[in-house]
């Protein structure tokens, strides 16, 4: 079943008189349960792609449908609700709120929901246990290692049980051993049926993906992208 449907998604940035086309008429669909890798050099449109997919920015033209919802027809506040209910974001490291403990950081997305406090605490604890940080609940981000911080970020993305996880260079600032551990964690989630879209410039990571697309100048570069089927054609 198709979870994400991008139709002619285009994003222009105007910089004075210049008009930069960051994303050019992108057509893409992602199946439920797929682990999609998005690669490309810097400036290829990866960040714009992720921002648009995550409802963080608005396209110049085009349509994005996720789970049957026409995302950019939603108003500002509804769009925020959509992000909360449908998406889990994993940003590059150092993206935790510095004055909140690991436990509190994971609870953040639940803060603005109507759930009971005890329920919020239990949900956050359960997901921190899942990523192997049960004994780090009360640590502040600065007291955690890079890998642990990344795990907290993953836990925070998972706490709402969102249908889609978006990851932006989650291993960008980690050494290769820790990187592998994080990728294994994500792969485990994928194995449990989680849909994940991950942006990376690290070719090493390609082996984890069901499918990889490469972006170049705001378009999909067919020479470096996998074909649609079969999914398991790993390079």
């Amino acid at each position: 079943m198709v979870l994400i449907e991008m139709k002619q998604l285009t994003k222009h940035f105007t910089n004075g008189a210049d008009c930069v086309i960051a994303l050019d008429s992108l057509d893409l669909s992602v199946e439920e349960g797929e682990f999609l890798g998005v690669m490309g050099p810097s400036g290829s449109g990866k960040s714009t792609f992720l921002a648009l997919l995550g409802g963080l920015s608005r396209p110049t033209t085009g349509q994005l449908v996720i789970d049957g919802i026409d995302v950019y027809q939603l108003g500002q506040e509804k769009l925020a609700d959509f992000r909360r209910e449908y998406l889990g974001f994993i940003f590059q490291s150092h993206n935790l709120v510095p004055f909140l403990t690991a436990h509190e950081n994971v609870m953040l997305p639940l803060t603005v929901t109507g759930r009971k406090s005890s329920e919020k605490r239990e949900m956050a604890e359960a997901v921190l246990e899942k990523v192997g940080l049960k004994d780090r609940l009360l640590h502040l981000p600065q007291q955690l290692s890079g890998g642990e911080q990344e795990r907290v970020a993953i836990a925070r993305a998972l706490v709402n049980n969102p249908p889609l996880i978006l990851a932006d260079e989650p291993t960008g600032s980690l050494d290769s051993r820790t990187s592998d551990q994080i990728m294994e964690l994500l792969n485990g989630l994928h194995g449990a049926g989680q849909t994940i879209v991950m942006v990376t410039h690290n070719r090493e990571n390609r082996r984890w993906f069901d499918r990889t697309i490469a972006l170049k100048d705001g378009r999909i570069d067919p020479d470096h992208s996998d074909r649609r089927q079969p999914l398991a054609e790993v390079v």
């Binding site: 995550g54 963080l56 500002q76 506040e77 925020a80 609700d81 959509f82 992000r83 909360r84 209910e85 998406l87 974001f89 940003f91 993206n95 935790l96 709120v97 510095p98 953040l108 997305p109 803060t111 603005v112 925070r156 709402n160």
Partner: peptide, 16 residues
């Protein structure tokens, strides 16, 4: 700014 960006990304409304 960054912290607020995180709040917004994980689904805080403007009002929040």
């Amino acid at each position: 700014t960054r912290e607020i960006g995180i709040y917004r990304a994980i689904g805080f409304r403007r009002f929040h």
